[in-house]
Amino acid sequence: MKKRWISYPYLLWMIIFIIVPLILVLCFSIFISTDNGLQFSLNNYKRFMEPLYLKVLWRSVVLAGISTIICLILGYPVAMILASKQMSKKSFLLFLCILPMWMNFLLRTYAWMTLLEKNGFINKILSFFGIGPFQLLYNNAAVILGMVYNFIPFMILPIYSVMKKIDPSVIEAAEDLGANQITVFKKIIFPLSLPGVFSGISMVFMPAVTTFVIPRLLGGGQFMLIGNLIERQFLLSGDWNFGSAVSIVMMIIILISMAIISKYDKEHEGGQLW
Results as ranks from 00 to 15, higher is better:
3 K>L: 13
8 Y>R: 09
10 Y>P: 02
12 L>Q: 08
14 M>N: 04
20 V>E: 05
24 L>H: 02
25 V>Y: 01
28 F>W: 08
29 S>K: 05
29 S>F: 06
31 F>K: 01
33 S>Y: 10
40 F>W: 10
41 S>P: 06
44 N>M: 11
51 P>H: 10
55 K>Y: 03
55 K>R: 12
56 V>W: 15
56 V>S: 15
58 W>D: 15
58 W>F: 15
63 L>C: 13
65 G>W: 00
68 T>N: 03
73 I>Y: 11
74 L>C: 14
81 I>D: 02
83 A>L: 08
85 K>V: 11
85 K>T: 14
90 K>M: 11
91 S>P: 07
92 F>D: 02
98 I>P: 00
100 P>T: 13
104 N>C: 15
105 F>T: 09
106 L>Y: 15
107 L>D: 05
109 T>R: 03
110 Y>R: 00
110 Y>E: 03
112 W>H: 08
114 T>C: 07
118 K>S: 05
118 K>W: 08
119 N>M: 07
119 N>T: 09
120 G>H: 01
120 G>R: 01
126 L>H: 06
127 S>C: 06
131 I>W: 13
133 P>I: 01
134 F>A: 04
134 F>P: 07
135 Q>L: 02
140 N>H: 13
143 V>C: 04
146 G>Q: 04
148 V>Y: 07
150 N>R: 06
151 F>G: 01
153 P>H: 09
156 I>C: 05
157 L>F: 14
164 K>H: 07
166 I>M: 13
169 S>I: 05
176 D>C: 05
177 L>M: 15
180 N>V: 12
181 Q>I: 11
181 Q>F: 07
182 I>G: 07
182 I>D: 06
186 K>W: 12
188 I>Q: 07
189 I>M: 10
190 F>H: 02
193 S>R: 09
198 F>K: 06
199 S>Y: 02
199 S>R: 04
199 S>K: 01
201 I>A: 07
202 S>V: 04
207 P>D: 12
208 A>M: 08
210 T>R: 14
210 T>M: 15
219 G>M: 04
223 F>T: 08
228 N>G: 13
235 L>N: 11
239 D>V: 00
239 D>C: 01
244 S>Y: 06
246 V>K: 02
248 I>M: 06
252 I>A: 11
254 I>T: 14
255 L>S: 10
256 I>G: 06
256 I>P: 02
262 S>H: 14
265 D>S: 15
274 W>E: 14
